[in-house]
Simulated scan of single mutants.
Amino acid sequence: MLPSEGDLHTVAIGDVTTEAGATIADAAIAVRRWGELRGEPDGENNILLVEHALTGDTRADDWWCEIIGPGKALDTDRWCVVCTNALGSCYGSTGPASEHPDGDAWGSRFPAISIRDMVVAEAAALDALGIGRVHAVLGGSMGGARTLEWTLLYPERVSYALVIAVSARASAWQIGIQSAQITSITQDPAWQGGDYHATGSSPDAGLAAARRLAHLTYRGELEIDERFGTSPQSGENPLGPFRADDQRFAVQSYLEHQGKKLTERFDAACYVALTEALNRHDVGRGRGGLNKALHSINVPTMVVGVDTDILYPYHQQEHLSRNLGNLLAMAKLSSPVGHDAFLVEARQMDRILRNFIALTEQAPSGREIAAARGEYAI
């Protein structure tokens, strides 16, 4: 049974065995939904499963407020929008900050997880809610990686997919910049091997440093330079005879603000767990390589990229579009904002999402295509 509209609901899914063979005991996944379910939970229905990005949560109507709601692109008068919190996060789903079955925090005992592990846990949560199929899965960044894995792990459960601002696998550059973020946290003395949750201190300095690095990859070089250039922070002088931490350029102050904001709402160990999962993202692993895996996808999939994305450059979405077994459409967000454009450029995303919804009502679903091929019955 789906939770009451807008309410946070935690779904117990039992033990989860990770791709690497570890066990997460008594796991749970948090979920919210908006709009009423129409159709059959195990058949044709109106469920849109929305996947959040790295530090996102189940409040999709907040971080995508221009997109989700009555009369909007994801019209909750017509569609049942469901959003889960990823395994490993700190917004209701089991992660390093959650209570272990022994009563303490999981901490360092929480195993390394992959994007596939997140999707397996999410599928188990939908099972527990009685949902066997969804009309579409859609998400950006880490949410886009999860969407891709849905089409490969559970193609019979997904009719359509929308993959935004992500690649088929982590590039060496992405692993490098993300590993630097992890190291910023794990080298903080307050990290304490990942077992800091009951000590009264936490690696906030490391998490803030990680966020400063990450934020530079989330935003475009053009936008950052246009906003700040070489301007000093008001009342400070970064051009004095000696460098000083309290004499900053405006961009330094901005990034420090972004880092502080994250420490107030997110757990450092969860940030490490999710970032490591992004490092392990590779849809070709165990499937004969990237292109073979992508070609095997029958689910009609729309791909969206951002022309100024530093983190997931547009050529990575072009690679997806050239190799997907069933490309529904390709779209480009044109914005100086960079990677975060899919969260910021509301007008462009509205047009893209309305087009995606229209296409899902015209093109045969992956399930119909597979049935026609005799791969499985409808």
Rank of each mutant, 00 (worst) to 15 (best):
L2D: 13
S4G: 11
L8F: 09
L8N: 11
I13A: 02
D15G: 04
V16M: 15
V16Y: 07
T17Y: 07
G21K: 10
A25C: 10
D26V: 10
I29K: 02
R33H: 04
W34Y: 06
E36N: 11
E51H: 15
T55L: 04
D62V: 13
W63K: 04
C65D: 09
L74E: 15
W79H: 08
C83K: 00
C83N: 07
L87Q: 07
L87F: 06
G88K: 09
G88S: 12
D104Q: 06
G107W: 06
F110A: 01
F110H: 00
P111V: 10
A112W: 06
M118Q: 09
I131W: 00
R133Y: 00
A136M: 05
M142D: 02
G144L: 05
E149T: 01
Y154S: 01
A170R: 13
W173C: 05
I175A: 15
Q178Y: 03
I182Y: 01
Q187G: 01
D188F: 00
A190Y: 11
A190K: 15
W191I: 12
D195A: 06
D204H: 06
L207W: 05
H215P: 00
R219L: 06
G220A: 02
E221S: 04
A268P: 12
A269V: 04
N279K: 05
N279H: 12
R280A: 12
G288Y: 08
G305T: 09
V306S: 14
R322G: 11
R322Y: 03
A331S: 10
G338L: 14
A346T: 06
Q348P: 14
N355F: 14
Q362R: 06
P364S: 09
E368V: 01
Y376L: 01
I378C: 00
